[in-house]
């Protein structure tokens, strides 16, 4: 039982980490775009709200006719799932940087670009990371559904346990998913605390 779980846990982690990394990069870019351009903002935040409402199983199967089955389409779907919490947090964090601090940076002679890179980004980073943390729990949970589009992961074990009434396998796979979510949340929480500006 355990070799199968370990193997599927590895794939599960691969799917989740790839999706989270893509979502972190794309989410930061979209969040910054939403913050910088008010015309983009409505569109991006509206799409994020819509994306949050679409069920994750539908997200996985909506793309199936276009992308087919396997690992890559699962990563695309999980990335779309992880995007809204990241980009919303980036936008909120950048908006919440105090105008007084920004004025002070300008007063020190910083150009707008320097001000963004050396003042806004460090102040917004912990909030952005907490968006990735929220997303990590959702992605690791929903990655169990990736089994339905042939991407493997611990969902394979859960489905097999369901079909063969193998309760020990079911519990072992469930506990492994829960442990992965717990570890991801813990580590990202530590990372967010570490980059906090005091």
């Amino acid at each position: 039982m355990w070799p199968s779980i370990l193997q599927h846990a590895w794939r599960h982690a691969e799917l989740s980490l790839d999706a989270l990394a893509c979502a972190a990069v794309l989410g930061c870019a979209l969040g910054v775009a939403a913050w910088a351009w008010s015309s983009v903002r409505g569109l991006v935040l509206g799409a994020a709200a819509l994306g949050r409402t679409i069920p994750s199983i539908a997200l996985l199967t909506l793309l199936l006719p276009v992308l087919g089955i396997g690992i890559a389409p699962a990563i695309v779907a999980l990335t779309l799932l992880a995007l809204p919490p990241v980009l919303v947090n980036v936008d909120v964090a950048l908006r919440e940087v105090s105008p007084a601090v920004l004025d002070a940076a300008t007063g020190l002679g910083m150009t707008p670009l320097q001000r963004f890179a050396r003042v806004s980004v460090p102040l917004a980073l912990p909030v952005a990371l907490s968006g990735v943390r929220t997303a990590s729990v959702e992605v690791i949970g929903s990655a169990t559904l990736a089994t339905f589009i042939g991407a493997g992961g611990l969902g394979d074990d859960i489905v097999r346990a369901l079909q063969t009434s193998d309760i020990p396998l079911l519990i072992a796979a469930t506990v492994t998913v829960a442990a992965m979510a717990f570890v991801a949340e813990f580590l990202l929480g530590r990372l967010a605390a570490r980059v906090e500006v005091h």
Partner: peptide
């Protein structure tokens, strides 16, 4: 709530 929905359903 944190149990993955597929696992809860299987149980």
């Amino acid at each position: 709530y944190t149990i993955p929905s597929l696992a809860l359903l299987a149980l």
